[in-house]
Structures are given as C-alpha cells and as structure tokens.
Amino acid sequence: MKFICEKNALVEGISIAQKAVTGKSTMPILGGILINAKNDTLIITGSDIDLSIETKVKAAVLEEGSLVVDARLFGDIIRKLPNSDVEVASISENSIEIKCEKSKFNVIHMDAEDYPSLPSVEGNKQLNIAQKCLKNMIKGTIFAVAQDETRPILTGVLMESKDKTLNLVSLDGYRLALKKESIEFDDEVNAVIPGKTLNEVVKILGEDDDVTLTFNENHVLFTINETRIISRLLEGEFIKYNSIIPEEHKSTVIVDKNILLNSIERASLVGKEGNTNLVKFDIEDDTIVITSNSQLGNVREEVNINLQGDGIQIAFNSKYLIDILKIMDEEKIYMEFTSAVSPCVIKNIEKDNCTYLVLPVRVSTR
C-alpha cells in the first residue's frame, strides 16, 4: 500500500473513525484503525464491535492495499506532522513508513484480514432528517440517559416514529426528556440506540444536508455525507413513558428561563454538600423563592413569575433542573406542578416540541 494525502484531511478522517475505538476490547486488533486505499480514496474504519465508524478521505493512491495501524499512535503521529502532504507506504510485511517534509517514522502494522467485518445493515426502513434537527433532538435528550448499567435499556435513547412524528425519549429514574419533530416518514420505527453511540453521532453531525438512518432488527446505520456509523440496538422493552407523564396539574408557572437558570445555579453553589445539590422552591403569588442551606452557608433567591393555580413548596436536585434549562431554547417556559411529591413538568410556551419531567426530592417537614 502507498498513498499521499493532505495532512489535515487525513487527521479529520482518523479523528472520526477513532471515535469508535475504545481500547477496552479483548481483541488487540480493535485497538487499531483499518485503512483501505483504493481508487484514490482511503476508507478508514474504527470499531469496538458494538459501534463501528467508517469514513472516506480523498488521497492519491499509488499502490492499493489495506492494513491496520494502532489508532492512538498513528493519530498522534499524523497530528504532530507539519501541515503538508503525508506519504504512507508499506515497507515490509508488518511495517509502514510515514513521511512528511523532513519527518520520517517507521511503524508496525497488523494484518487487515484479521479485522472483523462490519455488520450489514440493509433495511427498507430509511429515514431522512436534517442533520441540524437530529443534532438538536439528541442534545435535548442525551443528558437524561441512565449511567447505571443495572437497567441496560435505560442507557439508551428510544427513537420512535409514528404518524409522521419522530420522538426521542430518555429517562434515568429521576427525570425524563422527550423531544419530538414532524417528519415525512410513513413507516413506524421503535429502536433503542445506546447513549454512547449518540454521543459520538452528535459530534459528527453538521449543520447542513440530511442524515439517513437505516434500521434493521439489530442495528442502525447513520449515513452522514462520507461517513457511516453502525451501531447495535439495545435489546428489551423500553418503559412506557407516556404513562409516567402526568396528564393533569394543579399549578402552572410561567417564568423567564434564563433568570430562573441563573438563580438556581447561584443557589446550588452552597447546596453541593453530599450528592443531592438540594434547592427548595417556595412558590406563592408572583414569586419563586429559591433557598439552599448546608454547612457551607445559605442562600435566598427571588424570581418573578406568573402563577396560575395554588402555591406550592417543593425541593429538587438542582443539577437535574440545570441540565434541562440549559438545553431549552425559548425565553419563557411553563412549569407544571401537582404536589410536593409529584413530578414537575417543564415545557416550551411557543413550540410544543419538548416535554421534560423532574422528580422532586422528599424533604422532612419537621
């Protein structure tokens, strides 16, 4: 194999494929990236079996071939080279030479035939959606994915489409995030995509063009321009999330999102004792009084609101509220309350495209 490639283009291709290389596999070859040079194109692939990423880079291929190189070492070398053309060539059965201006490296490589083949994802369920739209939907739900592996299904995001609406749903037992968008897609899809996969997908998605999602029984394929991301789907039944979202409430608060966010962030500074990050809300008339007390001190914040319904006293883990408020994009929001031990529901006022739910923290009244 021998090719010449512009350094920055090669760095970008390596960086994309490398996102699938975890270094945790029991198969040493999966610590590498597969480079296939053919028809003036490099196909660069990284995989950990569950997640595989393949991307194409233009290059002058002088001699076709394929091999596997250590992902971290090869990536670090190419990034440190001068901003010029890079020449990579096989010089023996198990080594390559990397040249760029006055730099020259000899690096051991592995046999491409030992690299696992990527799953074939052929399905008639193909969904096209704007990259920017999917990116916003993922960012609006990924933070509520469970980190605890005891319920594996909750470490993923439910993607479901029906009646020309695409829903993304995540929940971790303390909060729920739902984003929805209208789409031109008639098929029904019900798939749980690992949060780890979507964390990498969102880094690759751009602002322009569409992304194509192809589903089969066990895998999903994201096609983003010259990049293909293949992920296994999580097995099992996702929680029936609609039954968790309250249909009725006793109080509605309309509030400026940024003022509320800033007040909660300030209040949480003295509430970081332990893991609860506790903040208390006293909602009455046209004000939320936010307080937090710990051995570090105490704080009191006031936020003007429009209250419809009864006043309420309720407490939350401030982190869960902050995560939600940071990703909401409207200036004014609804907060719906029923009781001090019932979930709070948070929604946009203008565009009905998201629903967030946060469980309160039970606080002793003694």
Rank of each mutant, 00 (worst) to 15 (best):
L359Y: 09
I43D: 07
E248H: 14
A9E: 13
G156L: 04
V189I: 12
G173Q: 09
E237F: 12
R228G: 00
I245Q: 04
S92L: 11
T22P: 14
E301C: 07
G156S: 08
K102R: 15
L166P: 09
G195C: 03
L213Q: 05
K80P: 03
V345I: 14
V107T: 06
G32W: 01
L30V: 01
S182R: 13
F222C: 02
I314Y: 09
T55P: 14
E160F: 09
V192M: 11
A71Y: 06
H219M: 05
S268V: 04
L67I: 02
L67T: 00
R228W: 06
D210M: 11
T212V: 12
I78G: 01
S90W: 09
K2Y: 09
F222N: 01
C354L: 13
T150Q: 12
V157Q: 03
D310N: 11
K80W: 04
F74K: 02
Y174N: 11
V279F: 14
I35S: 02
F222A: 03
I98N: 06
L221M: 15
R232M: 07
E301A: 07
I49K: 09
Q147S: 11
I183Y: 13
A60Q: 13
P152F: 05
T355A: 09
I264A: 07
E93P: 10
R300W: 08
Y334I: 02
G236F: 15
S339D: 10
G123C: 11
T223Q: 15
T365V: 13
V169H: 06
K132W: 07
K203C: 08
I91A: 06
E350M: 04
S268E: 09
K2A: 04
V11L: 15
F105M: 10
E12G: 09
L221P: 01
R79I: 00
D148P: 11
F3D: 02
S52K: 07
H219V: 01
E12Q: 14
A146D: 13
V145C: 15
L34R: 08
I78P: 07
V345G: 01
F238N: 06
